[in-house]
Design a protein around this nucleic acid. Structure first.
Lengths: 158, 158
DNA sequence: AGTGAAATGACCATAAT
DNA sequence: ATTATGGTCATTTCACT
């Protein structure tokens, strides 16, 4: 079991989701703690897996990825082993920046990036449609990021 | 236009997507630079908007959000003004951790979290379905995060 | 390379259980 | 007493010029 989050923990999480690279000293000042206890709490949050990591958010277009899309995949009913292998292959593709298994019509939702339409076409045609166990693939291009991955709100209480 | 990314820049981006909180000294060592030029490049990448920010990745369940879902929204054809207001309302909801406008069948894809089924129901019934201009809403719960938001691959060359 | 700031660990204080 | 909180100080390491 995990210990409950203190009000200080919650403040730390709020600040750190907005600026993951803030110095511990500045963080401590923002949340109203001295540096030392602030750092102790931060380490504990990492240790407990509340904070899973820190990540620089990089502009995909600056890396030359002009195309962003969601791909909706339906699977054929098949033995569990096949499903595992399919999912492992999917995870291995660089184009896949996120993938979730869903309950409902669609079985898998893939968030993908590609350099251009051609390479996205190559990806779907040669590397998605050919996966054994895939029944249906349809792609929708992203027109705009209305709310591009924001912090998870940190409730006041548990 | 933006200046092209040097091999050092690319290495910096790779490391920082994996650990956004690494110290400049350690980063410099990893990418094979002295601390000073490494810091200059880092600042330039931030300045140029290649790095958009830094963010702690927080475990949603640790915050008490047991439910994660994708919501697929179809819109009625309507005047542009309505659409803007709808999107602004959508952005304002805490449950919405990401939202993208799509080309195709579905107009909007919403990535949402909620404390439990009840509060997710309240969210969709009272705050999504009632938005003026919404024609259809369907939700799929996330069963598992097969690949939970990974770094964008940094190509060797432009 | 040098200086001011930050990180980090050892140790202490207070309060609630 | 124990657990959880936060603080102070001294030392090492880092950021930045």
């Amino acid at each position: 079991m995990r210990r409950p989050l203190s009000p200080s923990d919650r403040r730390i999480l709020r600040v750190l989701q907005g600026d993951g690279r803030i110095t511990n000293a500045a963080l401590a000042e923002k949340v109203g703690l001295a540096a030392s206890p602030c750092l102790r709490r931060l380490k504990a949050l990492e240790e407990d897996g509340v904070i899973e990591g820190y990540r620089a958010v990089v502009n995909r277009k600056a890396l030359g990825f002009e195309v962003e899309a969601f791909v909706f995949i339906k699977l054929e009913q098949s033995e569990p082993g096949w499903r595992t292998r399919l999912v492992d292959r999917l995870k291995g593709y660089d184009e896949v920046i996120a993938c979730h298994a869903l309950a409902g019509e669609v079985d898998l939702i893939v968030h993908a990036v590609a350099r251009d339409l051609d390479s996205f076409g190559e990806f779907t045609m040669n590397r998605l449609l050919t996966l054994p166990g895939v029944a249906d693939v349809r792609s929708s291009f992203v027109l705009s990021a209305i709310k591009p991955l924001t912090p998870i709100p940190v409730p006041e209480h548990d």
